Simulated scan of single mutants.
Amino acid sequence: MSKTKTTPGQKFGKAAFLNAAKSTNERLLLQVLLKDGSSYTKEEAAQLVEDWKKREVES
Rank of each mutant, 00 (worst) to 15 (best):
M1W: 03
M1E: 05
T4Y: 00
T4K: 11
T4C: 03
K5V: 11
K5I: 07
K5N: 04
K5S: 14
T6R: 12
T7D: 00
T7W: 03
P8F: 10
P8G: 09
P8L: 01
P8M: 13
G9L: 02
G9V: 12
Q10A: 10
Q10S: 04
Q10E: 09
F12W: 05
G13K: 01
G13L: 00
G13C: 08
G13N: 06
K14C: 09
K14T: 04
K14V: 04
A15E: 09
A15T: 13
A16V: 07
A16S: 07
A16E: 04
F17G: 01
F17N: 02
L18I: 14
N19Y: 09
N19H: 04
A20T: 10
A20I: 08
A20W: 07
A21I: 01
K22V: 06
K22S: 12
K22E: 14
S23I: 06
S23G: 12
T24I: 09
N25G: 10
N25P: 09
N25A: 11
E26K: 08
E26D: 11
L28N: 14
L29C: 14
L30F: 07
L30P: 10
V32I: 07
L33I: 08
L34W: 02
D36Y: 11
D36P: 07
G37L: 03
G37I: 01
S38V: 05
S39P: 03
Y40M: 01
Y40V: 10
Y40D: 00
T41V: 12
T41P: 05
K42S: 04
E43M: 02
E43N: 10
E44V: 00
A46T: 13
L48G: 08
L48D: 10
L48F: 09
V49K: 01
V49W: 01
V49G: 00
E50C: 13
D51P: 08
D51H: 07
D51K: 09
W52G: 00
K53I: 07
K53P: 10
K53A: 11
K53R: 13
K53S: 11
K54V: 02
R55N: 05
E56S: 14
E56V: 14
E56K: 15
E56M: 14
E56W: 11
E56C: 08
V57G: 06
V57R: 12
V57K: 13
E58A: 15
E58F: 14
E58H: 15
E58R: 15
E58G: 15
S59N: 14
S59M: 15
S59D: 15
S59E: 15
